[in-house]
Design a protein around this nucleic acid. Structure first.
Lengths: 362, 362
DNA sequence: CTGAAAGCGCTTACAG
DNA sequence: CTGAAAGCGCTTACAG
């Protein structure tokens, strides 16, 4: 019944089983398993023979069978949020992609699932009960989030992308140090020659926003610019019109030759509009820095603070798959410098490109 | 050993097996299986008793075991492209999310995987060989794409989001009718009172771009505006500076009171800049329509053609899981109207919002 | 209508 | 060092 020639071009691939390999290599199937999982327990000539047949037959272990036998899925669930879209920035989409990319290096894979509309926890409970995942990668952790405590209570492995603000003693998280990112941006603006550096942030009270604001203050302190006239800030919710109005107020106080650091690219877009409305030149007269390095920043050539998403994803896998108890990791963001923070603008023709010219999706 | 109280709050959930249910309901485990998979074969009182115990114990079948026994993963693979980011628009990210949302309704789930850097096909071969998926959802189909033919050759189920241009006889695809979307946008512009309607597209030769351009021509024909002076078009690659220059050339020929339909939001952003550079008012003097309804269109209040991604995802699952041979599906996009196509602009304070005010991601 | 048997493809102690 | 046995949690013919 078993066809050892099945790995040829015109038959379905991946159908060779451990028994096929065993027969071809003239050993038992558990020796094949040992060759893969405990090669030190197999005699060298046998090992070589088995590995050769594995290679020849294109054998890949059937992960489903491994999962059942090992009672371990070697997979983690990631909840995607359909309503999160529309909000500017797709950080979590990129995080998902990078989790997928990094998964094989940790012998694991990723399963996406949608939230249960009735009950946050129920989606996690169900997904876990199927046996398809061993645990979860959390994102978008927020105040009052019931998930971390529930997972702890039920001894379900997980890691969070973003500090778990409600459980300060929790250690399994990786986050990006937004405050330091803003601080570095201030240093960049100082060295680029801007005189006064204001801040356009969100209303106080959000941990993320407050963190970025304190980075601005730290940056000013680094530069010795803490005189009262230099601590100009405005705040706005994540809305373009309100951001524009707030930025206009800020610019009136700051004047030409100054710069504005923003808590998001949306706010930065408001600042760009305000610069235009005020009749000033972006970059030359007023510097603007955004946060998250979204497509909007790219398209409008706005300098922006970029989160190291790929590194965050790799770190998340390490925490999840390493046997040691994890330590929290805070990653440093990087600044993508564009013409919005260049006082002597280069010709647009020679402006360095950071996006290849590609055709759009259908 | 088996603890029937395990579904309580402080023990790990989802650990009840079919044997636990069988014992509690005083039947054999195959009767439990039948109650779930062939309820008509089970006597009513027995069925009721079994279902009650299933509910009480919170039993969910272990999908891994089902997969192994049924030799079917009830899962499909979706390749994510790490380098696709940076390109404006995240249509495929949204498609992935919507595939995940729609999966349970089709008794299936989604597994993401990253491309093999050496060889496109190898990533698919490997993923299939693990037994974790039954087939694939393809996206980003392109000329010379080796995947569809390989999957056909190996009898691997798949569906494509986007026409498979190289294999016209293929039927398992769902796509969005961009041409009709552009045609409808032209009708909208005509009724909004714009005199001449130009087109800003990509260089001829891309199937998607050519389709959108022909929609523009069809829209003009609908309105009886095919006199030679009304067929003004320009082209640009997907780059902001080039798009701006092309749009400026186009605007010089069209003049105030006209509108520009663009093949992408990136091109539309160029058009918006050109309008500004020319000293005209967006909407009031010049209408602009983009494509894909990205964050950029939203942020700049540009009318844009939106692809029905959720419906495309549902259709993809239907094609994949329905036993009938599929028929190609072409979905109609919808126009998200914003102030860039309003000749009498409303006050920005009363402009209808289509994005909730939310706090940004950390 | 219900249950005993076989088995999906693997791995893990355990004999030999 | 190698192989026979047991079993992960299910489902599917097949007897009774």
């Amino acid at each position: 019944m078993t066809d050892l020639t099945r790995a040829t071009a015109d038959t379905p691939p991946g159908r060779a089983t451990i028994v096929d390999v065993a027969r071809a290599a003239q050993v038992s199937r558990q020796t094949v398993s040992n060759a893969l999982n405990r090669p030190d327990k197999v005699a060298a000539p046998t090992l070589e023979r088995v590995l050769r047949e594995i290679d020849r037959l294109g054998f890949t272990p059937h992960i489903t069978a491994q999962q059942l036998r090992r009672r371990k899925a070697a997979a983690y669930g990631f909840e995607v949020n359909p309503s999160g879209h529309g909000r500017m920035g797709h950080i979590l989409d990129e995080f998902l992609v990078q989790l997928t990319v990094a998964a094989p290096a940790h012998g694991s894979h990723l399963m996406t699932f949608a939230p249960d509309p009735q009950d946050v926890i129920e989606g996690y409970r169900q997904t876990l009960a199927t046996g398809l995942v061993d645990g979860f990668v959390l994102a978008d952790t927020r105040h009052g989030d019931p998930r971390p405590q529930w997972l702890l209570d039920h001894h379900v492995p997980f890691v969070a992308f973003g500090r778990v603000w409600d459980l300060p003693e929790l250690r399994q998280w990786v986050d990006v140090d937004g405050g330091t990112g803003v601080r570095d941006a201030v240093a960049h603006l100082v060295s680029a020659g801007y005189d006064r550096i204001g801040f356009l942030g969100w209303p106080a009270g959000s941990p993320v926003g407050d963190d970025r604001r304190s980075g601005w203050l730290a940056g000013l302190a680094d530069a010795g610019r803490t005189a009262s006239g230099q601590l100009e800030a405005e705040e706005s919710v994540q809305d373009l019109d309100q951001a524009t109005a707030a930025a206009e107020r800020l610019l009136r106080r700051l004047g030409p030759g100054s710069a504005v650091v923003c808590a998001s690219d949306m706010l930065a877009l408001g600042a760009v509009r305000a610069v235009r409305n005020t009749g000033l030149a972006l970059g030359a007269d007023i510097g603007v820095v955004g946060f998250d390095d979204t497509d909007v920043a790219d398209a409008l050539s706005v300098t922006s603070i970029r989160q190291p998403i790929a590194e965050a994803a790799r770190t998340a896998w390490q925490m999840l798959t390493s046997p040691e108890s994890p330590r929290p990791v805070l990653l440093a963001p990087a600044l993508t410098v564009r013409s919005s923070t260049t006082r002597t603008p280069t010709s647009s023709a020679t402006r360095p490109r950071d996006t290849p010219i590609t055709e759009e999706q259908p």
